[in-house]
Amino acid sequence: GMDVRRLKVNELREELQRRGLDTRGLKAELAERLQAALSGPSSG
Rank of each mutant, 00 (worst) to 15 (best):
D3V: 08
L16M: 02
S43F: 12
V9W: 09
R33H: 01
Q17Y: 11
S42R: 07
K27V: 07
G1F: 13
L21R: 02
L26R: 15
S39H: 13
L12T: 00
R33P: 00
L21Y: 05
V4Y: 06
L34K: 00
E14I: 12
G40Y: 11
K8L: 08
R18N: 06
V4E: 02
E11R: 08
D3T: 07
A37L: 06
Q35P: 00
V9K: 09
E14A: 15
R18I: 06
R24F: 07
V9G: 03
L26Q: 11
R13K: 09
G25E: 02
R33D: 01
G20N: 06
S43N: 12
K8Y: 05
R33M: 02
G25W: 02
Q17F: 13
R6V: 09
R5I: 07
E29G: 03
K8H: 10
G1P: 14
Q35H: 10
E14L: 14
R19F: 05
R5F: 14
M2E: 06
K27T: 05
L7I: 03
L12K: 00
L34H: 01
Q17T: 08
V4D: 03
S42K: 09
S43M: 12
G1L: 14
G1D: 11
L16F: 01
R33Y: 03
G20W: 02
R18K: 14
G25S: 01
Q17L: 13
M2F: 14
A36R: 13
L12I: 06
L26H: 14
G1H: 14
D22K: 06
G40S: 11
A37F: 11
V9N: 04
R6Y: 11
E11V: 06
L30R: 00
E14P: 00
E11N: 04
G25N: 02
V9R: 06
E11P: 01
A31I: 15
G40H: 13
E11K: 07
P41L: 14
S42F: 11
G1R: 09
L38P: 02
M2Q: 08
A28K: 11
E32W: 10
K27I: 08
A37P: 01
L26P: 14
P41M: 13
A28G: 08
Q17E: 11
K8C: 15
G44C: 11
A36E: 08
N10M: 08
E29D: 08
L30I: 03
R5P: 07
R13N: 01
T23A: 07
G44V: 12
L26M: 09
E11S: 05
G40P: 11
N10H: 15
P41T: 13
E29N: 05
L34I: 02
E14F: 14
E14G: 07
R6W: 10
V4S: 03
M2G: 07
R33Q: 01
L12V: 02
N10P: 08
A31P: 00
R24A: 09
G1V: 14
R6D: 09
M2P: 09
G44H: 13
G40V: 11
L38K: 03
L16P: 00
A28H: 14
S39Y: 14
A28D: 09
K8S: 15
R5Y: 14
K27Y: 11
G44N: 12
R33W: 02
A31R: 14
E15L: 09
S39D: 14
A37D: 04
A31F: 09
R6A: 13
G40A: 14
V4Q: 03
D22N: 09
Q35K: 11
A31S: 06
D22R: 05
G44Q: 12
E32H: 11
K27Q: 08
M2W: 11
A36F: 07
S43Q: 13
D22V: 04
R5M: 13
K8I: 03
L21A: 03
D3F: 08
E14V: 10
L26F: 09
E11Q: 14
Q17D: 07
L7F: 06
T23D: 07
G1S: 13
P41K: 10
S42I: 13
L38I: 11
E15P: 00
E32L: 12
Q35L: 15
N10G: 09
S39W: 12
R19H: 05
Q35M: 15
S43Y: 12
D3W: 15
E15H: 06
G40W: 11
L34P: 00
L30D: 00
Q35F: 11
L21G: 02
T23E: 04
R19I: 05
A31H: 05
R13G: 00
G25T: 01
L34W: 02
G40N: 13
V9A: 07
V4T: 06
D22Q: 05
R5W: 15
